[in-house]
Amino acid sequence: MTSEIQLAGFGGQGILFAGKVLAYCGMLADREVSWLPCYGPEMRGGTCNCSVCLSDEPIGSPTVDEPDIIIAMNDPSFRKFIDTVKPGGFAFVDSTLVTASTDRNDIKVFCVPATRLASDNDLAGGANIILIGKLIRETGIISMDDIEAAIREIVPPKKAQLIENNLKAIKIGYEFM
């Protein structure tokens, strides 16, 4: 099985980090994984996206043209990617920031007010991980054990206090109905 995931939003929302968390989970589960960022001036505050592939087969192209899953954290990203999602796929949308909507009924769209939930819970910058929590619940492509291990691995020792914050964000997203 292969899951192709597109994550997109503004620079600074932690898009690349969220993608890295997913890729890391895949690696811990002994799957083939790839993580491909946008780079260049876009990284410095403009729109930002990255593609993650998780697969049981060797990954050919790390680019994602028709994602199984998207995470959209702003309007431009939502508009750019919502129509590319494969039928039967998933969209996880930060509804605090995304006002646009779609009339597609062949995909499952989950609107999570992630930015508001993050600030309500004193988790500034945690909206990305809240959306990952929701993704885990709805898609089941990665396990809670792996996500916890991944976060513990990726967060640098200097920022150890962020580990608990990230784990809390996962839980909030996972439990959001």
Partner: peptide
């Protein structure tokens, strides 16, 4: 190339 340089894999 930029793709292989920038991408992450295990």
């Amino acid at each position: 190339d930029g793709l292989l340089g920038q991408m992450m894999e295990p």
